[in-house]
Amino acid sequence: MPEKQQPIVALNHTARPKKPKLRPQRNTLVLSLKKNDLELNFYSSLDSEIMNKLLEKILS
């Protein structure tokens, strides 16, 4: 005796919007400076005003 066949019905899924993965920004090296015994490395996370003030004091 054949079994009753049921139609295949797709289920409704609530679509969740994909959240973009938050990656931390890369802290890249902007400037590496050596003067006498002092070595300075400036990275992109440093505020440009602070970097300029430091460079003025060191290089003058």
Score class of each variant (00 low, 15 high):
V9I: 15
L59A: 02
M1F: 02
L11K: 08
V30A: 13
V30Q: 13
L54M: 10
L11R: 10
E39G: 02
M1Y: 06
K57Q: 09
K4T: 13
K21T: 11
I50D: 07
Q6T: 14
N27A: 04
N36T: 03
N41L: 06
N12D: 12
E3I: 01
K53S: 12
L29D: 07
L46C: 08
S45H: 14
N41E: 15
D47L: 06
K57N: 10
P24R: 06
N41K: 14
A15N: 07
F42C: 13
V9P: 00
E3H: 00
V9A: 11
S32C: 04
K57F: 02
R16F: 01
I8K: 08
L46Q: 10
N41V: 04
N12R: 03
R16A: 13
E56R: 05
Q5A: 07
L46P: 01
L55Y: 00
L59I: 08
P2E: 11
S60C: 09
P2H: 04
P7D: 05
E56N: 12
N27Y: 04
P20W: 00
L38V: 13
S45M: 08
L46F: 07
M51P: 00
K4N: 10
V9T: 15
F42E: 04
K4Y: 01
L33Y: 09
S48E: 02
L46I: 11
F42A: 14
I50K: 11
R16S: 13
L31R: 12
K21V: 10
Q6I: 09
P24T: 09
P17H: 11
D47A: 12
K35T: 14
I8T: 15
S44K: 13
L11G: 04
D47I: 00
K53H: 11
K18R: 11
I8A: 09
S45V: 05
P20K: 10
Q6D: 09
V30S: 07
N52A: 14
R16W: 01
M51H: 05
Q6F: 06
L31H: 07
S32H: 10
S45P: 04
P2N: 12
L38S: 09
R23V: 14
D47S: 08
A15S: 11
K34N: 15
P7L: 04
E39H: 12
L29K: 14
E49Y: 03
R23H: 12
N12T: 15
K4P: 04
L38D: 10
L59P: 03
L40Q: 03
L59N: 12
P24E: 09
R23K: 15
I50R: 11
Q6A: 02
I58V: 14
N41A: 14
P2L: 05
P2A: 07
N52P: 01
P17D: 09
K34Y: 08
K53R: 15
N41Y: 08
A15R: 02
A15C: 07
K53I: 03
P2D: 13
L55G: 08
M1V: 10
H13V: 15
S32Y: 08
N27K: 06
P17V: 01
Q25L: 11
R16L: 10
P24C: 00
L22T: 03
K19P: 11
K34H: 15
L38A: 14
D37F: 00
S45I: 06
M1R: 06
S32Q: 12
A10D: 14
T28C: 01
T14W: 07
D37W: 00
E56D: 11
S32P: 01
N12V: 15
N36I: 03
